[in-house]
Design a protein around this nucleic acid. Structure first.
Length: 423
RNA sequence: GGAGGGAUGGCAGAGUGGUCGAAUGCGGCGGUCUUGAAAACCGUUGAGGCGCAAGUCUCCGGGGGUUCGAAUCCCUCUCCCUCCGCCA
């Protein structure tokens, strides 16, 4: 969420940001300011009343101590109606606060000035392209390759669980594990701390990163224990520091975390979801950073570079998109997508998205830091995939297939694949 | 899963109805002393809200209650510890 003080000072800017992010209705801004004013007025009255009541209680205490029971009794009589109005005001204060906060949660993050203004994915800016756009007629999509070699079993996945829960078998299973290890090891070399996180989170955590109420339908729920299966490692890793105050000298903090991810993907059908393109359970290595505000945009660039490094090292062709205001999501202020070329499908596949949230997440989660002067400030959070596995698997299989049907092991993965040349 | 005991500031740990947002120790920060450091001594040191400020309010695991007044009493939930059971 945004800082209410910021909204108060820049209402027009906030409205403009909402429009740029594709929300026609900007009245929430005026409503939140109104609700905030109402709330503050009530707080003021309530505080005064409580102050008075506290004074009286203290007097009573003092009188009782001196044994002046009659005088104390007189004051107790006065407090009767005060108690009732305090209770009433407390209730009112709570309602107004909720009202304000609910409005506040509906206002999206402000796009950074460098973000292109636009409405759809067509307005995203393709910043760079690396490698050739391979268009060989004979190259098969990964699902045909995988089937021919017995590497991925989609139908047994359907039997055991449902669509979107494949089995990886033999060399493909090992390849996926090799990729995960390679990604994590590379991040460790770049000064990220490895984290192993819970795969289920509680409601507070789901709220912390904004999965609730925003993307509630995206998550699998374990109702009996009131847990949610994580849709990304971002959720447990960012919540790792929820409610904490960092010392300035400890920043930046960088984590790398591998987890499976579960997404319901309700409503997705068709060609987009063939093979490994879109799954209900998939693996991902996630990079998360907690940084000082003044460094967050530099950290976004290095985060993006760290993700790109992996794609490069695997020898895959890819392009980098700077997402436009309308396509980047509610919580981000700037976001890059990295898409690899899939030679078998002849299309781009998103494998990473790197975002700066500025203080938007941190404010909601109360993650802060103490600066040199001892002042407590909101810090900035960032995250990015480094990388999502299934589409990388797809792209690797397709890219490294030979006309014979054999698939070469990418050079950087050989140490993780027992030195073998072919899968 | 059963029985019992707990949850207090960065940590340890007092406080069991009234000037308690909380003793004390450690740690942190500032200072005195010292060539420098250590030790010693002095001071300072939780978070949030409202307010220009003075100030004021809230927070002693979460929620609810009793009371003029709750860290302290009652209910409830969660978590931790000990013992028993089960177990990768």
């Amino acid at each position: 969420m945004l800082d209410i003080a910021f909204i108060k000072e820049n209402p027009e800017l906030v409205k403009q940001a909402m429009q740029q992010k594709g929300e026609k209705e900007t009245s929430a801004v005026d409503k939140v300011l109104e609700a905030d004013a109402d709330w503050r007025k009530t707080v003021h009255t309530l505080d005064n009343l409580r102050s008075e009541s506290n004074q009286k209680a203290k007097q009573i205490g003092a009188l009782m101590g001196q044994g002046k029971k009659d005088e104390a009794q007189a004051i107790i009589k006065e407090t009767g109606e005060m108690k009732a109005s305090i209770k009433e005001l407390e209730e009112k204060e709570r309602v107004l606060k909720d009202e304000r906060d609910n409005l506040l949660l509906r206002i999206p993050n402000i796009p950074h000035p460098t973000v292109p203004v636009g409405h759809t994915e067509n307005d995203n800016k393709e910043e760079a392209r690396f490698g050739e756009i391979e268009d060989s007629e004979w190259k098969k999509p990964h699902w045909e390759l995988a089937e021919a070699n017995g590497w991925i079993d989609f139908s047994r996945g359907v039997k055991v669980t449902g669509a979107g829960f494949p089995f990886y078998i033999g060399a493909a299973a090992r390849l996926q594990r090799a990729l995960i290890n390679y990604f994590i090891d590379t991040a460790i070399d770049k000064d990220y701390t490895e984290l192993q996180a819970p795969y289920m989170v509680n409601e507070d955590s789901a709220k912390g990163t904004g999965q609730i109420p925003d993307k509630e339908d995206q998550m699998y729920v374990v109702p009996r224990d009131e847990f949610f299966l994580i849709p990304t490692a971002e959720v447990p890793v960012t919540n790792f520091h929820r409610g904490e105050i960092f010392e300035e000298k400890d920043l930046p903090v960088r984590y790398v975390c591998y987890t499976p991810c579960w997404r319901r993907e309700a409503g997705s059908h068709g060609a987009d979801v063939r093979g490994l393109n879109r799954l209900h359970q998939f693996d991902k290595v996630e990079l998360v950073k907690f940084v000082k505000p003044e460094t967050s945009y530099d950290e976004l660039e290095t985060l993006r570079e760290d993700a790109e490094y992996l794609i490069n090292a695997l020898g895959l062709s890819y392009r980098r998109l700077l997402m436009c205001t309308g396509d980047m999501g509610f919580t981000q202020s700037k976001k890059y997508d990295l898409e690899v070329w899939s030679p078998g499908q002849k299309r781009w596949l998103e494998v990473s998205s790197c975002s700066n949230f500025e203080g938007f997440q941190a404010r909601r989660m109360m993650v802060r830091y103490r600066d040199k002067d001892g002042k407590i400030e909101t810090l900035h959070t960032l995250n990015g995939s480094g990388l999502a596995l299934p589409r990388i698997m797809a792209s690797v299989l397709e890219k490294y297939q030979e006309e014979s049907g054999k698939v070469l092991v990418p050079e950087v993965l050989k140490p993780y694949m027992g030195g073998k040349d072919y899968l």
